[in-house]
Simulated scan of single mutants.
Amino acid sequence: MSALDTLLDRTVIPGYSKLGYRLRSRTWPDDDPAPNSLTGKTVIVTGARSGLGKATAADLARLGARVRLVVRDASRAASAVADLRGDVPDATFEVDECDISDLDAVRRYAGRLTDPIHALIHNAGVMPAKRTQSPQGHELTLATHVLGPLLLTELLKPLLADGRVIFVASGGMYTQPLPTDPEYRDTPYKAATAYARTKRIQVELTPLLAADLAPTFVATMHPGWSETPGLTDSLPGFTRLTKHLLRTPAEGADTTVWLAATEPAPHTGKFWHDREPRPTHYLNRTRESEPARLAMWTYCRAAAGIQPQAT
């Protein structure tokens, strides 16, 4: 990592903004995914109706992938699919309806899939204003960002043998340690904190999931600050303050697409931003012990209904 890249990373505002992306992209080696590198391969993108998910789907399709767009409500995805087909006319897009927070829906969805999957991209995100529960009674951000993705990944193991699993996290996770109350039952609920805490969980469980799925590639990335409907709806004040600094959705999605398609696959189990592995902590107060990480792994797998691993 260059000195400029490190400086951009540590100072946050330049590094997470469109300035950071544009400065870094000028120095990247010539390792863009090759044209048509995903031809004949299937990728799944959750939360693909808008924003980062939609941009990710478009760029993967440009590389030749058949893209399955996982959305909560298929009827609301028609305009997004029309946009995508207009942008990439020769691509194949399929809309799959599944609420990732609903573990029963995840099981039904996984049971319908039979073809090999090259990349499973966990992009679906929520930030409810008040504490909300999933159909199984789990706090909604935890269910959407962690439990549903873990269960879907587990159920698709047979189809992911040579594939890649990528979680879209957030730089906001740097402010939070692993929670001792992942369901947010014991303290007053704060939407942004709940979001950041579940993104911290994603990052901390990535090395454990990578070991569990090996040789399948697993990574977590964060997209920086990108102009998306989710950001505008959830944090309107922040969006107004940073509107001149926000990345485009395509810039935010760049590292996800690169991780999904570049050859050979990068090192597994890492946390990435702008095509480089990044530290998972900058603050001593957020660092966790290995027993705490393993306890969270055990809790989340049990909460997702994943059977304990044989010893």
Results as ranks from 00 to 15, higher is better:
Met1Asn: 07
Leu4Cys: 04
Leu4Tyr: 04
Leu4Lys: 14
Asp5Lys: 15
Thr6Glu: 14
Asp9His: 14
Thr11Gly: 00
Ile13Asp: 01
Tyr16Leu: 13
Ser17Ile: 11
Trp28Ser: 00
Trp28Lys: 11
Asp30Ala: 12
Pro33Lys: 15
Pro35Glu: 14
Pro35Ile: 08
Gly40Val: 08
Lys41Gln: 15
Lys41Pro: 00
Lys41Ser: 11
Thr42Gln: 09
Ile44Trp: 13
Ile44Met: 13
Gly47Leu: 15
Gly47Phe: 12
Leu52Trp: 11
Lys54Ser: 15
Ala55Lys: 06
Thr56Glu: 12
Thr56Lys: 12
Ala58Cys: 04
Asp59Arg: 09
Ala61Leu: 08
Ala65Gln: 09
Val67Ile: 10
Val70Thr: 08
Ala74Ser: 15
Ala74Gly: 06
Ser75Tyr: 05
Arg76Tyr: 05
Ala82Asp: 09
Leu84Met: 03
Arg85Asn: 13
Asp87Lys: 04
Val88Thr: 03
Pro89Gln: 05
Thr92Lys: 05
Thr92Pro: 01
Thr92Ala: 06
Phe93Cys: 02
Asp99Asn: 14
Ser101Pro: 02
Arg107Ile: 01
Tyr109Met: 14
Tyr109Gln: 12
Ala110Met: 05
Gly111Tyr: 09
Arg112Phe: 00
Asp115Leu: 11
Ile117Trp: 14
Ile121Lys: 07
Ile121Pro: 14
Asn123Cys: 11
Ala124Lys: 14
Gly125Phe: 12
Val126His: 05
Pro128Asn: 08
Ala129Asp: 12
Arg131Met: 07
Thr132Gly: 01
Thr132Cys: 08
Pro135Gln: 08
Gly137Arg: 11
Glu139Ile: 04
Thr141Tyr: 02
Thr144Asn: 05
His145Leu: 05
His145Tyr: 06
Pro149Asp: 00
Pro149Phe: 03
Pro149Ser: 01
Thr153Leu: 08
Glu154Phe: 00
Leu155Thr: 10
Leu155Pro: 12
Leu159Glu: 14
Leu159Phe: 00
Ala161Asn: 13
Asp162Leu: 03
Val168Tyr: 04
Ala169Ile: 08
Met173Arg: 02
Tyr174Leu: 15
Gln176Asp: 10
Pro177Leu: 09
Glu183Gly: 00
Arg185Ile: 09
Arg185Ser: 07
Thr187Asn: 02
Tyr195Gly: 00
Tyr195Met: 05
Thr198Pro: 10
Leu205Gly: 07
Leu208Asp: 04
Ala211Ser: 15
Asp212Pro: 04
Leu213His: 03
Ala214Arg: 15
Pro215Gln: 15
Phe217Pro: 11
Val218Asp: 08
His222Ile: 12
Pro223Asn: 02
Gly230Arg: 00
Thr232Lys: 11
Leu235Phe: 04
Pro236Phe: 04
Pro236Leu: 06
Gly237Arg: 05
Phe238Arg: 01
Thr242Ser: 07
Pro249Phe: 03
Pro249Asp: 07
Ala250Trp: 04
Glu251Pro: 13
Asp254Trp: 04
Thr255Tyr: 01
Trp258Phe: 01
Leu259Asn: 02
Ala260Gln: 03
Thr262Trp: 01
Pro264Lys: 03
Ala265Lys: 08
Pro266Cys: 02
His267Lys: 03
Gly269Gln: 09
Phe271Ser: 02
Phe271Cys: 03
Asp274Val: 00
Pro277Met: 05
Arg278Thr: 12
Thr280Asn: 02
Arg285Ala: 09
Arg285Asp: 03
Thr286Phe: 06
Ser289Asp: 09
Ala295Asn: 10
Cys300Ser: 06
Cys300His: 03
Ala304Val: 03
Ile306Phe: 07
Ala310Cys: 07
